[in-house]
């Protein structure tokens, strides 16, 4: 029997893996992948909780919006990273530090 706890645990794992990828900051693309994992963790939670909200389906609707918005943000982010590569010849956030105190 798969209960809601299973979904939440998988979601928490996904979120932690994503957060690690973001904080490790090896490569801008990998940071984006990490962000995507975090968003997917949230979407999994929303759909799992949405099962108990059978009158309004708020969670399911939210999940759809979140998927679309994540795709929009990633499209813009990839375009920006492409421009970064043209100027800096690298996409490693650690190596790009013209702007700092």
């Amino acid at each position: 029997m798969i209960t809601i706890t299973h979904f939440l645990v998988v979601g928490a794992w996904l979120f932690s893996i994503g957060l690690y990828a973001v904080l490790a900051r090896r490569n801008a693309i990998l940071v984006l992948v990490g962000i995507e994992l975090m968003i997917n963790a949230a979407i999994l939670n929303l759909v799992a909780f949405g099962r108990y909200d059978s009158s309004l389906y708020g969670g399911q609707a939210f999940a759809l919006f979140a998927i679309v918005l994540a795709a929009a943000a990633v499209a813009v982010a990839l375009a920006i990273i492409l421009n970064v590569y043209k100027h800096h010849k690298t996409v490693n956030p650690e190596d790009i530090s013209d702007l700092k105190d």
Binding site: L32, A77, I80, H87, D98
Partner: peptide, 24 residues
Amino acid sequence: TEAAMKYVLFGAACSAVMLYGLSF
């Protein structure tokens, strides 16, 4: 380009964290 990249990565990460909080 550096400013744009920092903005987009930080912003997307923050909104992902926010979405996870909203799901709870």
